[in-house]
């Protein structure tokens, strides 16, 4: 396996604690990223990301987003996320990561330009390696 550049900062938005545990573990395994932000729903993520900008910190390079969440789901997050003013203009690469095999969901994802790709749960180490390759 060739050496790939590590991600500076990543973000997981999901309400399932087991999934978060698993993802952290795989990220460690493939040396994906050391700085991992976790939010349990869309609203928490929007609030947290806004806080980062306010502090003048960098936004995460890669964002993993679940669709089915309480309070604010993945779709709603996407609607609100594009409205956040991004001062340094750096692109945030978004991956939707869900257990849904609903073709309507896949169709809908295609309509969001900022979504890079769709990863079907369960997440595997290879998925993250692919992400690293994409980003590079």
């Amino acid at each position: 396996m060739m050496e790939l550049k590590k991600i500076q900062r990543t973000c997981i938005i999901d309400d399932d604690p087991i999934f978060i545990y698993g993802t952290r573990r795989i990220m460690k395994e493939v040396d994906f990223c050391d700085n991992i932000l976790v939010f349990n729903n869309g609203q928490d993520a929007i609030d947290g990301l806004k806080e980062l900008i306010a502090k003048g910190e960098d936004l995460p390079e890669v964002l993993f987003l679940d669709l089915n969440m309480p309070i604010m789901n993945g779709w709603e997050f996407l609607e609100d996320f594009v409205k956040i003013p991004n001062p340094d203009g750096k692109k945030v690469i978004i991956y939707i990561i869900s257990s849904s095999v609903d073709p309507r969901d896949l169709e809908r994802i295609r309509n969001y330009k900022m979504v890079n790709n769709y990863i079907l749960k369960p997440l595997s180490p290879q998925d993250l390696v692919n992400v690293l390759q994409d980003v590079a």
Binding site: S98, S99, K121, P122
Partner: peptide, 12 residues
């Protein structure tokens, strides 16, 4: 979806 989310967790 719901069954898959659990099964995916289980397999992971």
């Amino acid at each position: 979806h719901n069954l898959r989310s659990h099964s995916s967790n289980l397999s992971m």
